[in-house]
Design a protein around this nucleic acid. Structure first.
Lengths: 226, 226
DNA sequence: GCAGATTATGTCAGCCACTGACATTCGGCA
DNA sequence: TGCCGAATGTCAGTGGCTGACATAATCTGC
């Protein structure tokens, strides 16, 4: 199950020695599958791409594909997993003085910025991950799968928030509520970003997210009439 | 595409005369399919129920099933559509003095209460719709489809809010943001309701929803530490 | 280096969701 | 009654996905 490697090997964390040939080959196949799928999806759309195509583009059997990914959705969403992992990592390391809401906002902005800087252009990069967001947003099946992942992520966020503030999530609803609000805010931002002609790239996304955050207070405030 | 009939025929709205035999039979088949599917899902689970089973339980070909529902998910979620429609209806008729947030809260509470009163027990009733929520929540494929519907509903809510307040949704982000927050709040409530042993039935659900609403302010407030 | 245990992969057969094409039957209506 | 259009059935086919088993590749201790 050694799947996603958010950061290249060699970091202090992985105290185990270099992974064997077997492990490396597995990672390699997986990456190749993701990339091939990605290109095919961008080129001819998600629905018009068959799993057989993806598999044979990498010279493996269809069966092997399904040993790496539970379904066709998963290979499409795999690219976003990195960003999500990194966001959680950022959130865990925010200073304790920040309010929960501040911490969330700062983390998501930092996460996008980091990823924007750290990666080289090309397939698998952030910009193509963002292109993927567009595909997701107008492919019902993919959107559905994506939303499910997002809610799982929300659960994780709630948990991290509760730990951070030393609360019992079973008793206190605030972490869950805030995580939910945050998640929906992000989704609204994604939607704006894909719908309108926002400046592309991570910075454009950051701008849209900030704009939505700024409307949180006003939206919940009393009356809206001018 | 005359599909859902939120309220029995005979209301002042339907100015057309009684629908012909053909129309009635169609509605009948549809209802039968929903009910048969519902029972099978509750009895043996969603995944272990095939479309063929559902179809032949109603003495209809599989092909016909797919002329009524685009996919297996849809027949499962059809039961919830009533509640959603009714909620939107409630929202449209809230007094203009209420703040948007108040209107949303009042609408969702009223919607559940109404549906709890109006229906007789049995399949297709609210209580079995609520049972269905449990199935949805732990059937990944269904959950995904459900979430997609929910977000469509959010878009509609945002639109209604914008109309209500006389705003241009392209300019003002508040309707979108509030709709998103509201949607996520509801989902968190549903999750609580299915996870914990909340009192069943509409009133239990209303209680959970109210509790989550009450935490909205505190969750967004500054620090949480006691 | 080499057996033998592990593990990844390929092949094959099969289920099931879903779809297009065409024939048939049934309700609406003159 | 007889015609038209809509609903249904039948059939064949595609594609996602899975279990079972055989084969080939890596790893492990020697």
């Amino acid at each position: 199950m050694a799947a996603r490697t958010p950061h290249p090997a060699g970091t202090p964390e992985d105290l185990g020695r270099a992974p064997g040939l077997r492990e490396r080959k597995k990672q390699q196949t997986r990456d190749a599958l993701v990339q091939a799928a990605h290109e095919l999806f961008l080129g001819q759309g998600f629905a018009r791409t068959t799993v057989d195509e993806i598999a044979s583009a990498v010279d493996v059997s269809q069966r092997t594909f399904f040993r790496y990914f539970a379904n066709k959705d998963e290979v499409a969403l795999a690219v976003l997993a990195d960003a999500e992992d990194h966001f959680i990592h950022c959130l865990r390391h925010r200073p304790a003085e920040e309010t929960p809401l501040e911490a969330l906002r700062a983390s998501i902005v930092k996460a996008w910025r980091d990823l924007g800087n750290a990666r080289t252009p090309g397939p698998g990069s952030i910009s193509s991950a963002l292109e993927l967001l567009r595909i997701i947003e107008d492919t019902p099946a993919l959107l559905a799968a994506h939303l499910r992942r997002v809610t799982e992520q929300e659960r994780l966020v709630a948990q991290v928030l509760a730990e951070r503030e030393g609360l019992d999530p079973a008793e206190d609803l605030r972490p869950v509520v805030l995580a939910a609000v945050f998640g929906s805010l992000l989704r609204a931002a994604h939607l704006s970003w894909t719908a309108e002609q926002e400046p592309a790239g991570p910075e454009g996304m950051v701008a849209v997210i900030e704009r939505h955050f700024d409307q949180l207070g006003p939206a919940l405030a009393g009356h809206w009439r001018p």
